[in-house]
Design a protein around this nucleic acid. Structure first.
Lengths: 158, 158
DNA sequence: TATTGTTATACTCTATAACTATA
DNA sequence: TATAGTTATAGAGTATAACAATA
């Protein structure tokens, strides 16, 4: 259990971290903004999936996800195959063109961060990444419970 | 110096942390969105200041700052006194009404985070706050150098 | 009847550029 | 001429609600 003032500080830090996100997003290609990059990145990391799963991973509404996906599909960075199990769905997957783009974006990120975080040790950055992942988990768990979401990948007894 | 893959991971963590920010912003009063809250919060923490200083602390353009400030001023949460040193400027300061609002917002943040971060220790949260502050510093320093900004609070020799 | 996904609309946040007033 | 701040406009991101097609 943490101190009250630390909660307030976290709220402020998260509010202010937006500036860092904006700095990072400035290096993206003009037709691939942050939302599109997030879609490509998740498809690379998790492989083929449906819209609903992607929306869950992005933690944004499916209507928003739908527009991001349309954007990257129009530019030929992902493929959409019919889902044999459900004709309402399509299976999304990163294609070679999307992988190439994502590779270029990763290079730019690394180049920028290697300069900006010159004085960060491997351990420092690892800790930050770990704590951010844990923070997202803590919030993600609450969201799941709040929405009474059933995990579609695991069969839960009725 | 950190590993390349950690840079990529940081970019992804920052991209995904937006969901946490959105969760936090949902508890704000309807007429005090995140941008307004950030203005009030900085005025509470740093005291009276001018627009340009506030924009620098927010790390956003002054045009945007101007609109946030107009919003909170219209609602009577801050005061704007003429700056005796420069008739183009006004000195912004949080007033009692703004302090009261900010107090309520802080309470809501603490209540929410105490639940969500139930299993976080004091040290964990302290580390996260420290690392986030350091991350902002690393980026802030780069911004300052890039823009050739002179610190207006300290007299620098010509 | 419920669910998957799309589209229309509205709101927040930000940046750029043009403008006013003062330095 | 340069700077402090405002306003207009445009673009990205998100949420809600209404809708189509399928389960």
């Amino acid at each position: 259990m943490a101190e009250q003032s630390q909660y307030e500080e976290l709220a402020q830090q998260l509010s202010a971290i937006g500036a860092v996100k904006r700095d990072l997003s400035r290096i993206l290609p003009h037709d691939c903004p942050a939302g599109s990059t997030a879609v490509l990145s998740l498809l690379r990391h998790h492989g083929e999936m449906r819209m609903s799963k992607l929306a869950e991973l992005l933690a944004i509404d499916m209507s928003v996800t739908s527009r991001h996906v349309a954007h990257v599909a129009e530019r030929g960075w992902i493929d959409r195959q019919p889902d044999p199990l459900d004709k309402r769905s399509r299976l999304l997957s990163l294609n070679p063109s999307g992988e190439k783009l994502l590779g270029e974006i990763s290079e730019r990120y690394v180049e920028m961060l290697a300069g900006t975080l010159r004085d960060w040790s491997d351990d420092d950055l690892g800790q930050l990444n770990t704590l951010l992942a844990r923070l997202r988990d803590s919030f993600g768990d609450c969201r799941s419970r709040a929405h009474h979401t059933l995990d579609s990948t695991t069969r839960t007894p009725a």
